[in-house]
Structures are given as structure tokens and as C-alpha cells.
Amino acid sequence: MDWRWDFTFETVLPRILPGLWVTVEVTFLSFALSLVLGLFLMIARRSTIRPLSVAAGEFIEFMRGMPLVVVIFFLFFLLPEIGIFLAPFWTGVLAMGIYNAAPVAEILRGGLQAVPKGQWEAAHVLNYSTYRTWRQVILPQAVKPVVPGLGNLLILAFKETPLLSFVAVPEMLDAARRIASETYRFTEPLTVVGILFLILSLFSAVLIRLVERHLLTETRHGK
């Protein structure tokens, strides 16, 4: 084995770091989309209109059994056929946003179910408006149990971004593969990408644990 440090620092890192930025961008943009879509899915799932809630439930079930690559390729091929031309980057954001909406909906639903029924009844008895009930009673209590789940999902989404290299989104793995195909050296680029992923996901796991602890102590003071 020969590991070349000069190659690592002069060629590999400068080309992979922009890819890291793309990875982070895709992660957060798609996750924001997932949150919005997931919220709508959750509302549909809880709806009293039976066909709507059944459809939402089946959609969630269906998406959970499907690999993300299939969704990515499907959108990548389908969108141009129906006349929508997007850059691979935005196709990727869209695919990951739709894909992760199902687990987001499940997590949000779990959070709402964790709020005891008595809280709704109490707000009703005190004649709170719908807005005030949600804003001051339900949401503050529903947010706390949701944070760890959403945090883990965010890390999962981050680790799913390399799949976008299949459709040539210029993220880290794509950059590494380009370097490898130009120089015939796989060792340095792929190892650097692996190490970067490892560092970032460990780092974000610690970050989420801190947020979680902060939320826990905050509510304890509140009571």
C-alpha cells in the first residue's frame, strides 16, 4: 500500500471540501422539505376524513419499504419526460425530501400522541382559541419528545446523501469518484470521504444529545 500525503492534501481535500458543502446543503434543504411535507402527511393521517387518512397511512407504509435510490432514479428519469427540467441537485433535494417525509410524519404523530388528552380538554374548558391551544398548550409539549427522533433522522438523511452521486450531484462521493477516475487512485479519495462522514456524524450525534439535554433541563425549570 502506498498512501501519498501530498496527493491527499493538494488534490483530494481541495476538491472534496466543496462537495462537503453540497452534502450539507442537500441535507438541510431536503430536510426542511421533509418537515413541511411530513407535517401535511401527519395532518392528513390524523384527519377525520377516512379516505384521506387511509391514503396517507398507505403512502407512509409504501415509502418505508422502498429504497431511496429507486425514488431518486424515478424522479431523475420521470421529471424530464413530463417536461420539468431541474438540475440534478434539485432533483436530489426533491427525492430526499419526499422520501424522508414519511418517517417525519410518523415521528410528529408520536409527539402529538404523547400529549395527554386532558391538556386538550383543559384548554377547551378554559375557552382557549384553537390558535392559542396549539401555540401555548399542545406544541410546547409535543416538541420535546420529537427532537431526538428528528435529530436522528437528520443524521440518517446526511448519511443518505452519497446516493445522489448516482445522478451526478456534485457531493463528496461524486467528487471522490471523479478524482479516482482521473488519477486511478481510489485509496486516498474514498478514505478521506469515509473519515469525513465518520467525524461529521459523530459530531452531530453529540450536538443532538446536547440539545436534548438542554430541552430536558429547560422544562424541569419551567415546572
Partner: peptide, 24 residues
């Protein structure tokens, strides 16, 4: 556990197939 939960599967697959030969 930490390494394989931290690195995405696709990177692991590439690494096993393209980099391991470097280590013989």
C-alpha cells in the same frame, strides 16, 4: 458500531471494493 453507523453504506461498499485491494 460507531464506525459503521457513522459512514454511509455506499461509501463502505466503494471502500471495500476499490480500496481493500490496496491493502492486499
Amino acid at each position: 458500531i460507531e464506525v459503521f453507523r457513522g459512514v454511509s453504506l455506499l461509501v463502505v461498499l466503494f471502500w471495500l471494493y476499490f480500496v481493500l485491494p490496496e491493502f492486499g
